[in-house]
Amino acid sequence: MTTAAKRPTKPEAKRPTSNTIARSAPSRSGFVAHVARWAGLSVVQFVLVEYIVSATWRGLYSYRNNYISELGIPFCGPTGNWPCSELYVLLNASMVLFGLAIAAVGGSWYIVRRIDGRAASFFVVAGVGAITAGVVNQGVNYPIHSFGATVFFIFGNFGLVIAGGHPSLRRSIRVAVTALGAVGLAGYFAYMSGHEFGLGIGSMERIATYALLVGVVVLSVSQFNATRAPKTVDETA
């Protein structure tokens, strides 16, 4: 046999090998696994940013009596002496990041099979709502801002209730996550109907917000090892 007979043709030389394909697939899966592992934990930034902006609010800001969205209003009155914060943009940016994180949780966790399609869809929609509320602050267009916040509260907390039933979770985690989603929904509907129960309207809004935030963090911590790498994903879950 001549050496020419052993030389591969051009199409054969350029054809990707099975090893090349095998290497690229885990790389993509690894990226999704990293997103799934850390996206949910990133929502804690909202609590820190909210505290910083509220501390710089001109006047006395009350977590009990003031709305969260008031921290994102840039207008300080016609003479510039109404209560507001010069760091308002941080609150709005933080809300956008919150929305991106929730949407990333929905997409990546569905891909690695830590939540089902229903919960993933609810989280993605909730993320879009939060992004809308952050981009269009209350001072720019209240109806659009309010609509985005409503979508965030309802779909996000409903997403928790659905995600809490996933079989990959321990019973204690399922109960905790489902309960947090239910508390968030109850807080939102009480807030919207004007029922404060002596806690203040700001507290009721924060119940809806923090219940969702804590629920996502609890889910993330409980699934931390499961989303470490693609090989740990339970395909039958």
Score class of each variant (00 low, 15 high):
2 T>P: 12
2 T>I: 03
4 A>C: 00
5 A>L: 10
7 R>C: 00
8 P>K: 14
15 R>Q: 11
16 P>M: 08
16 P>E: 04
17 T>W: 04
18 S>A: 15
22 A>F: 00
22 A>G: 12
26 P>C: 02
27 S>C: 09
27 S>H: 14
33 A>I: 02
34 H>M: 12
34 H>V: 11
35 V>T: 11
44 V>W: 06
45 Q>E: 13
46 F>M: 11
47 V>I: 15
48 L>R: 01
48 L>G: 08
53 V>D: 03
53 V>G: 03
54 S>W: 02
57 W>K: 06
59 G>E: 08
60 L>Y: 11
60 L>R: 14
62 S>I: 07
62 S>N: 05
66 N>H: 12
67 Y>W: 10
69 S>Y: 02
69 S>E: 01
69 S>N: 08
70 E>L: 07
72 G>H: 00
75 F>W: 13
76 C>L: 02
77 G>H: 08
77 G>E: 05
81 N>L: 10
82 W>R: 05
83 P>E: 12
84 C>E: 07
87 L>F: 14
89 V>R: 08
89 V>I: 15
92 N>V: 06
92 N>Y: 09
93 A>E: 12
94 S>C: 11
98 F>Q: 10
99 G>C: 10
107 G>T: 14
111 I>L: 15
112 V>T: 14
113 R>N: 14
114 R>L: 09
115 I>M: 12
116 D>F: 02
118 R>I: 13
118 R>K: 12
119 A>W: 01
119 A>D: 03
120 A>F: 06
123 F>Y: 11
123 F>C: 06
123 F>K: 05
125 V>W: 08
125 V>A: 13
126 A>Y: 01
130 A>F: 11
130 A>C: 11
132 T>F: 07
133 A>C: 05
139 G>Q: 05
146 S>V: 05
147 F>D: 10
147 F>P: 00
147 F>G: 02
155 F>S: 14
158 F>M: 15
160 L>R: 06
161 V>Y: 01
165 G>D: 02
166 H>F: 05
166 H>L: 00
167 P>R: 12
168 S>M: 04
168 S>I: 10
170 R>E: 12
172 S>W: 08
173 I>M: 00
175 V>N: 00
176 A>P: 03
177 V>F: 02
180 L>Y: 05
186 A>D: 07
188 Y>V: 07
188 Y>G: 08
189 F>A: 03
190 A>S: 15
193 S>H: 03
193 S>W: 06
193 S>Y: 03
193 S>R: 11
195 H>L: 13
198 G>P: 07
198 G>M: 09
198 G>E: 09
199 L>T: 07
202 G>C: 06
203 S>N: 10
204 M>D: 07
204 M>K: 09
205 E>A: 10
205 E>F: 08
205 E>T: 11
207 I>R: 01
207 I>T: 13
207 I>E: 01
214 V>I: 15
214 V>P: 04
215 G>V: 02
216 V>W: 00
216 V>F: 01
217 V>E: 04
223 Q>K: 11
224 F>E: 02
226 A>C: 00
228 R>N: 13
228 R>M: 12
229 A>G: 06
229 A>P: 02
232 T>N: 12
232 T>H: 13
232 T>S: 10
233 V>N: 06
